[in-house]
Design a protein around this nucleic acid. Structure first.
Lengths: 143, 143
DNA sequence: CTTGATATTTAGAATGATTCCAATTCTTGT
DNA sequence: ACAAGAATTGGAATCATTCTAAATATCAAG
């Protein structure tokens, strides 16, 4: 697998806009994240990087994802004590984890819900982030 | 520090109602959790157990808290990759973590918010639990 | 109140995700 | 092309948590 030039330019631009130097490793990690909108762990991203011409070290995958989160390019998803997952969906959304399949779904958060959630905070509480995680079962028939 | 008899009976009853055998260790861990309504980690509960007549092993603190969570006696609070915290507040509530002090506050969840949150789930999604975590800063002047 | 079956406790080893380290290699502005 | 600063790397280190197997405690039945 190899990235074509336009795709690559898009990635470079995204990285620069986020204030990050566009290195080969960051481009690869970002493209892996964008190419399948599931919620891979660091380990999974690292596995997928094997399909690229040159691999990436595990430490670098950690570094890349950390810098992406810091710069707001991706979000972390934490479930209990499991390995952290990463998702490039930047719209406000919650997560729903099917406890049978382990699969994590994005749930869009309408603006009025966000407003209502902020309204339950006492005076003086200034939220910078909110994480909403459901877990349960789904009756859908997709994979 | 020592538990008086009425207090002890209350703890035993709580444990039995939760379907757990009332052992000395469980009574102690539960009383530690109830006596200060902060959100201690396993390590902190273990430290506090030192003030009791006989200590408790770390593994047992893990075991006790795990059984409490399973039986619904306490809730877990997970923040990022930090050690899990435990709280005996069983009303539906969110958590707010002050990123300057590290302190975690309970935020009551009104019923209408819960209903609205459930309404954003697509057909077929059956939630069994929801975890809502804010983090940010507070302007309050308490410790 | 003893006994046996079962559950709990325990110390320490093992695990596994993540972070740290110090050396090498890259990126970028000049 | 060069220097300075940033990023990458493999491997070691960390640390919360889980596992293990032996010792101990609980409880129901007699």
């Amino acid at each position: 697998m190899r990235l074509n030039t336009t795709e690559l330019d898009r990635l470079k631009t995204s990285l620069k806009q986020a204030g990050l130097k566009p290195t080969r490793q960051r481009e690869n990690v970002l493209s892996i994240l964008l190419s399948r909108r599931d919620h891979p762990t660091v380990e999974e991203v690292w596995q997928r990087s094997r399909t690229l011409s040159r691999g990436i070290s595990l430490a670098t995958v950690y570094n890349c994802l950390e810098s992406f989160v810091e710069s707001g390019l991706v979000k972390q998803v934490n479930y209990e004590r499991e390995p952290t997952r990463y998702c490039p969906n930047l719209r406000p959304h919650a997560h729903f984890k099917d406890q049978e399949t382990g699969r994590v779904y994005d749930i869009d958060l309408p603006n009025e819900v966000l407003i209502q959630l902020n309204s339950i905070l006492p005076e003086g509480f200034r939220p910078e982030a909110i994480e909403i995680s459901f877990h349960g079962r789904t009756k859908t028939q997709n994979s």
